[in-house]
Design a protein around this nucleic acid. Structure first.
Length: 256
DNA sequence: ATGGCTATGTAGCATAGA
């Protein structure tokens, strides 16, 4: 089973690129973030025509998540129980016996902002919820834009980013809490090229200068990590005209 | 170099992303 995640930064703009990528890569599941579309405007027909089932939870202008899958999805859930959050950042469903959680973690803006405090609160709520999901589902994937670079290997210039949002110690601790809670970072199960990133700023030719961060992740429960065959970042879509600033990440594992 | 670029909502800029 191949499960991918991609922050598309507007599905309206990126739909042709998403359809082309699905056609070329044929993932079993694709988790999308930052669709930026109300549900009434979600391009479900176009995605179904491409051979995928689709679930979505969106809002006007900001946020919005979706799960595309070759097989039908059941037991869909679009919020963290017990956490009243008007922002559409969560979608979970069961596909082929695998519980798939699509996350769009708040950006946090800067470490001294209210948005940063919201980010840490959100991460704590997600961790509490996922602890229960792990107990209920031996086969669990948590894929999405975490907006956290887990350590200095995931940062083009660790000195410049030290203590900044996406790299601060409390955020990295929150990421580690997911791992100690029973999830594994599929990307780090394998030898990877240095300077592997999933996001590059649109400005200052950051992509061509390889000035990026690895902030999009596919985490696996122990059962799935044991059967994981590969995890890779596809930087090709970042070379497109009008690209998303994020690249897709795909994990491949045996799900039985 | 505290800028740079992209997208949305909405009609000239404000907000947000990371």
């Amino acid at each position: 089973m191949r499960v991918a995640t991609w922050n598309v930064n507007s599905l309206k703009v990126r739909l042709p690129q998403v359809l082309a990528w699905l056609e070329a890569q044929q993932p079993d599941v694709l988790c999308l973030q930052e669709t930026k579309l109300e549900d009434a405007k979600f391009p479900a027909q176009e995605i179904r025509a491409a051979g995928y089932h689709v679930l979505f939870s969106g809002q006007k202008t900001y946020n919005g998540v979706a799960i595309l899958s070759k097989e039908p999805a059941t037991a869909a859930q679009s919020s963290i129980p017990g956490f009243d959050d008007p922002q559409k950042r969560i979608l979970a469903a069961t596909i082929n016996g695998v519980r798939v959680v699509c996350l769009y973690v708040p950006n946090g803006q800067s470490v001294d902002s209210d948005k940063y405090r919201y980010k840490l609160e959100w991460l704590g709520q997600a961790r509490r919820w996922l602890t229960g999901e792990l107990a209920a589902h031996e086969r669990l994937v948590v894929a999405g834009d975490f907006n956290i670079a887990p350590d200095d290997r995931d940062v083009h210039d660790p000195k410049a980013w030290e203590g900044q949002v996406l790299c601060s110690a409390p955020e990295r601790q929150a990421f580690q809490n997911f791992l100690t809670g029973g999830l594994q970072d599929s990307f780090r199960l394998f030898e990877q090229p240095p300077q592997s990133f999933t996001w590059w700023d649109y400005r200052m030719y950051a992509f061509r200068r390889k000035m990026g961060l690895r902030i999009d992740h596919v985490l696996l429960s122990r059962r799935l990590a044991e059967h994981c065959r590969a995890c890779s970042i596809d930087i090709e879509p970042r070379k497109n005209e009008r690209p998303s600033d994020h690249a897709p990440v795909t994990a491949d594992f045996a799900s039985d």
